[in-house]
Amino acid sequence: MANYSTNEFKGGLKIMLDGEPCNILENEYVKPGKGQAFNRVKIRKLISGKVLEKTFRSGESVEGADVMDTELAYLYTDGEFYHFMNNDTFEQIAADEKAVGENTKWLVENDVCTITLWNGSPITVTPPNFVELEITETDPGLKGDTAGTGGKPATLSTGAVVRVPLFVQTGEVIRVDTRSGEYVSRAQK
């Protein structure tokens, strides 16, 4: 992988830091009146997700990270790995539990997810912003109630628990925002 000088730093550039691929979020050039110039950089570590600030001497070079995003459809899990497929080439790839993390609860068969690959291996799995899932369990609500009264918890087919309005019942399919984990609407079928 190529090295990048601090002059090339900008938001979105992927570099290696402490053995971990990172995404540069912000880069600021700092130069004291009579002194060494620095680049003050905000970075997200792509595996741990940690955001940190690091200062580089201007002109210093760092190793680039071979990181790319691919759009793959979720197939199934065998309990240990989560299997995805490229809908164009039918090539399959398996992500481990660490890469999927908490997002297992948003994986719906055939949904296209963003898989971030580092040196060809998946490091993160990002589900679509909205998924549709069936409610497997929720308390029966009162008839005539409308959304906005605080709602009730509902367990979905993947095990995810979200708050839903009282009028939504077990067996219904709902639309959820995976970024906030919030109920959006009943699925339109």
Partner: peptide, 13 residues
């Protein structure tokens, strides 16, 4: 203040 490669930072720096 986290410096990448912090070796040889002079006192003034």
């Amino acid at each position: 203040i986290d410096i990448h490669a912090p070796q040889n930072l002079s006192y003034d720096t």
